[in-house]
Design a binder for these strands. Sequence first.
DNA 1: ACTGTATTTAAGTATTTGCTTAAATAATGA
DNA 2: TCATTATTTAAGCAAATACTTAAATACAGT
Lengths: 135, 135
Amino acid sequence: MRYGRTINVTMDKNQSCIRVLADEVQIQQCKENLEENKESFGKLSSILNLAGNEVRLKILYLLEQEGQLCPCDLSDILGMSIPAISQHIRKMKDRNIITGKRSGQTIFYAINEEHLELLKPLFQEITVGDKKEMI
Amino acid sequence: MRYGRTINVTMDKNQSCIRVLADEVQIQQCKENLEENKESFGKLSSILNLAGNEVRLKILYLLEQEGQLCPCDLSDILGMSIPAISQHIRKMKDRNIITGKRSGQTIFYAINEEHLELLKPLFQEITVGDKKEMI
DNA sequence: ACTGTATTTAAGTATTTGCTTAAATAATGA
DNA sequence: TCATTATTTAAGCAAATACTTAAATACAGT
């Protein structure tokens, strides 16, 4: 099914509104803008989707604060089962947000440099609260 | 079921690792840090969760760029059904990310000021790509 | 009051998510 | 080699998500 204003309205029953006030040029420009940045939207939304889960947000925050942590530590800190943590880690590893370094039996995970720039401002939203209490 | 290192290991079969190397102090501090910022994590993750959907990210991006848009416009631009758009809008309205102003039959939605600060840096991730093409 | 337009809401559904438990891998040390 | 520890993977399942279609609501103009 198609959506959006069409020249040939009779061709398909257009579900969209037919507001006269609609700015066709504006709408066309928006479409083009989205199309141009198609890839960016995919990438960004997938990262935000990962960070948009409270457990994963906490994991990312902790990794940023502590530098690196193992699934075992995270399980302790978050009070969750190791498999649950491991599956969250896998998602972030798969989308290249974090990387693990093995040290014996333990695997230490850390945030990939390239994503810190995007994530740091988000963490500040959290840490800002700390400062308020410290004053 | 409980997780995490315990003093009385015999009391419950502790699923957590029992690594000697674990830094108990570090872990305790992390726990406290999370507890202190409990509310922030909830709020932030719920916003990121909304932005972590490609359709909603695009809606937010468009609202920021254009100032305000109606469901009808968004339906056109994104090529999606009006109810689909409306339901995304509802979620964001419910969590106070956007607000609607009625003008006749049309309702124009815009991002709430208080959230722009958090969202703008994210949008830059997208717009940065534009500049590259303009040079 | 009636018609048409813009939007929302409701109900139904296929897919995804995030946990659980149990089993599989991988590395260490006796 | 065998037992222990750390982590991952697999299978199962309840809940959440994101769409669909159809119906309801709200407003405007005649």
